[in-house]
Amino acid sequence: MIELIGLSKHYDTVRAVDDVTLTIPTGTVTVIVGASGSGKSTLLRLVNGLVTPTSGHVEINGRDTRKIPSHDLRRRIGYAIQDHGLFPHWTAARNIATVPDLLGWPKARVKQRVQELMTLLQLDPAVIGARYPHQLSGGQAQRVGVARALAAEPELLLMDEPFGALDPAIRAQAQSDLKALQVRLGTTVLLITHDMAEAIFLADHIAVMRAGRIEQYGTPADILARPANSFVSGLVAVADRPFRYLSLFSVADFVEDGPADGPPIPADATLSEALARMIWSGQDTLPVAGMADHCIRRHSLIGVAGPPRSGAVR
């Protein structure tokens, strides 16, 4: 568990980060969303000590990070940044080996770990390993950056706009790859972005940040359904908000008894996929794959997206 306790960073009169308290449960993804200048990058750098707080501190599993020498601390926290920041004079493999090398791991173990990570991130060690950063595509460089951040099995992975430099065409794929990787490894992640859709897709918890303060903290469903104020609702008020909301729930949780015709929908599909299928095929019910005499009904989907109709929020 990572705890940010009363963190503040003031530059002269500017309060870049103002009294932020936040808990990141182990094994979850917390995404901080904010515009540029909201203080989110400073907050991230406060966590690994690249910026020294004016007041407050960070605890990792109950241990005060001020008591850990800063380079030791940073070797225990993975750090992936926009434009990947790979060392241009080192090959991809050597870049990934950076932190294990700094930690003095034996050569054979480092080599094995690099192979393992490259395979995990779908980078062919024999081909990509020997390439220099300028010989990599944007997507490959981004994955090498993530592999480098994960190399020493960090207790926490910090990601500063990790997809910011990617082509929109490959960004969605990179996001789902990261999500799958996180589920597989169970890494605790603190990620910052200015893109609410990215946050909703990746996060277990979202913190919306403005002018150095957290405006709202909650699950993606909370943020979408019950924005705390007009600033947050402005961020989530996009045309497909109901669909985004539905995409947070899976079909398996809304299965009812009853027959239905047509091709079945997988139980792990999202409600937004189910609704899209119903609208397109003109059906009110869909059979669920692998569950005989069970179906999902359009009526119950309409009920899910209830909260916004409660009148409090536009």
Partner: peptide, 15 residues
């Protein structure tokens, strides 16, 4: 970016 990555990955000042 490279300097920030070096600091972030835990190089010492001399390293």
């Amino acid at each position: 970016h490279v300097i920030e990555a070096a600091d972030g990955t835990g190089f010492s000042r001399w390293g």
